[in-house]
Amino acid sequence: MQKKPLFATFAAVLCLGIGSAHAGAIDALKKFNADTDGISGSFTQTVKSKKKTQTTNGTFQILRPGLFKWQYTSPYKQTIVGDGKTIWLYDVDLAQVTKSPQDQTIGDSPAAILSNKSALESSYSLKEDGTAGGIDYVRALPKKNNAGYQYIRIGFQGDALAAMQLKDSFGNETTIRFNNVDMKPNLVRSAFSFTPPKGVDVLSN
């Protein structure tokens, strides 16, 4: 079973993008970025490639700047933690942990946009992108040709984060729907520390 970690394939959200547009999703994005220091909830993620479609479920926590925890709970168990310096990827089935430098690993990816307020404005151009299913979307287009993403869409219902969509450079499409979102969770930095469990293999990238 192919597994797709958050920082590699997932989707994006947050940060200020400046552009001339009518009131709508960009205003919601600006407010979200300005007001949000932490966020938590659950998610359903669907990845469509040319050969198959895979759906996963889990929970997430973000404390800005720079901290996030993304836990897949079904159909497999996998935990991704960004502690500000290192990204830890723990695959329960493989009993394996992979660690990578956070700044080098996430770059301009959606994970950077999720956890840092300045990432979107510096790396993407924004425009309003219509409404579907009651969700207003912002389309974020990367300023660099080597960003790895063709676009990222960020969706809001009112001021609430509702969905994210992205298409990567290989044509794979990822959609994330957020549920039970808490915009003011009681999160502490110590919750984003990670110690590899005893007996697992630890690899470095």
Rank of each mutant, 00 (worst) to 15 (best):
T174F: 00
W88E: 00
D91A: 10
A95Y: 00
A8V: 13
A25N: 04
G158P: 10
P185T: 01
G148Q: 01
Q150Y: 06
F43W: 08
D129T: 00
C15D: 15
P75N: 09
S109G: 11
Y149A: 01
S123N: 13
F68L: 15
G24D: 08
Q165T: 05
D35H: 13
R139W: 03
Y149E: 02
Q102R: 11
H22R: 13
L126K: 01
T44N: 12
A11L: 06
D93W: 01
F7C: 11
V92N: 12
N145G: 14
N33L: 02
S190A: 05
Q54M: 09
V92K: 07
F170E: 10
Q2I: 03
A140D: 08
K3Y: 04
K144G: 10
R177S: 15
G38P: 02
S123F: 08
A140C: 14
V81A: 02
A191T: 02
I106H: 06
K50W: 02
F10H: 12
N179G: 13
S49N: 10
S193C: 13
S40D: 02
G24W: 09
K69N: 08
N186D: 13
L120F: 07
I18D: 15
A8M: 13
T9Y: 14
C15R: 12
L67T: 12
N180R: 12
D37W: 15
A25H: 05
D136C: 07
N116G: 02
G17Q: 09
P110I: 06
K144E: 09
V188F: 09
Y151Q: 03
D83M: 06
